[in-house]
Amino acid sequence: MLYYTLKRLALAALVALTVSFISFGLLYLSSDPAIAMAGETASDADIEAIRQLYGFDRPILVQYFDWLQRAAAGDLGKSYYFRTDVSALIGERLPTTMTLGVCAITFAILLSVPLGVAAAIRPNSLVDRIALFLSVMGQALPSFWFALMLIVFLSVSLRLLPTSGSDTWLHFVMPTVVLGYYAAPAIMRLTRTGMLEVLSTDYIRTARAKGLRPPVVLFKHALRNAIIPVVSLAAVQFGFMLGGSIVVETIFALHGAGFLAWESITRNDLPTVQGLILVFSLFYIVLTFFADLINAWLDPRIRIK
């Protein structure tokens, strides 16, 4: 287990490094930070001065390692637009996004795992059909449109929920539903197929041949095995969700990291964008790392070699 953890950790670090390099290179190649920084009215001489002052004229690798070194120390540079530390800015916005993410993944799991299990227990039953319908809908529903429709029908027509802001928990209901419903279909399908697969295994037959009661067979023997891949998927979906929060936060005016991303992209605020990509990626990497550990811990075949 220790060896496995270390190996996995090294991989995670390598992935993080590569991602940071790619995102740095991408933004470096696709724009001239000096122009962005100087603003639209600046003269060529001003731009040149800024370029030299901030070292934008050095080779990309030098700049990258410079940036990386500071990033490792928690310094992601200064925002061109807000004129504050990017790390502080992100740190300020992250809690909202995290709250949203946790609510949404919880909602998604609570919706899709029971539904997936129920669908697998009775294939082709009404429950199975409902589950299939919901997942097909969920996969085809553009989240931005779903969000707007919710606003139009729930907030405005029925006056049930607030439409924007993040003051009360009520403000989180619609964003949670939109974001969660986006992640639910994949989790539901995996739960269903996983359960179906496990239910047809020899060891489930053994459990039934031992006379165990159906709930024990289903929830102890079957679910325990079927849930292992679902854990990984939920972690992956959680990571995707944070990336997807940009759409939802923009629509519901939730001032989280996603909203910040949209603001800084429209304002060409490169250091903030770069910082956000790094933070989101790191988050995904950490998540999948822990998911793998949980996985290994849940599956004795990996845990005990």
Partner: peptide
């Protein structure tokens, strides 16, 4: 997979 698609695409 570690790179947030929407964010990178938008940027």
């Amino acid at each position: 997979l570690s790179m947030p698609v929407v964010l990178v695409a938008l940027a």
